[in-house]
């Protein structure tokens, strides 16, 4: 089986609830980083970090620019910046134009990660009402990574995962309750 070097989760409307249910199920000794990019209002950063870290023993932190990416940590993309993955396994931030009306854009993180981690990357797209993440998943597939979506039937807003399903070859469709086990089994 392929090794997982990074697990990236993108989500928009209706995805917070999924994360709150998923995080408690992830093993505290998970041997890869989990990177979360969700759309939200500018300025609510620490709130989200606190909320998510209350649900897990893993370290949850908002990304600092040029920070080394470390296994066993849950990273949150800061609001109002795009989050990029660098070849030397660090994060960088970018304040360029919004993409799909979003900053951070899930596409940007998926695309830059795809080139760095190639076949050792897993990207999961959750509930949401726009099509951010779809192009990102295309790149992930192109570079040999694994494409995953939340089962649209279980999503509060099905549009985003449904768009992905329509336009990209999806490797796994996961129900909310299956996500934790799936991630733990990649260890």
């Amino acid at each position: 089986m392929k090794k997982c070097e990074a697990f990236i989760i993108g989500g928009s409307a209706g995805s917070l609830d999924v994360l709150l249910r998923l995080l408690p199920r992830i093993d505290a000794a998970i041997p890869f980083p989990i990177i979360i990019v969700i759309h939200r209002k500018h300025g609510s950063d620490s709130l989200l970090t606190d909320l998510l870290s209350s649900r897990t023993k893993l370290i949850v932190k908002e990304v600092d620019e040029k920070e080394n990416i470390v296994a066993g940590t849950v990273y949150i993309a800061p609001s109002d910046y795009h989050l990029l993955i660098e070849r030397d396994n660090t994060f960088s931030l970018d304040y360029s134009e919004k993409i799909n009306y979003s900053r951070p854009a899930i596409d940007v993180t998926f695309q830059t990660a795809a080139e760095v981690y190639k076949s050792n990357l897993y990207c999961l797209l959750l509930s949401g009402s726009n099509s951010d993440g779809v192009n990102g998943l295309k790149s992930v597939q192109l570079w040999g990574g694994k494409t995953l979506i939340q089962d649209p039937a279980s999503a509060q807003v099905a549009y985003m995962p449904a768009q992905a399903k329509l336009h990209v070859k999806i490797d796994h469709i996961l129900g909310i309750e299956d996500m934790g086990d799936f991630i733990n089994l990649l260890a």
Binding site: L84, E86, D94, V108
Partner: peptide
């Protein structure tokens, strides 16, 4: 310059 951003711009 950070490569990932430059590369995207180029």
């Amino acid at each position: 310059y950070s490569r990932a951003s430059l590369k995207r711009r180029i």
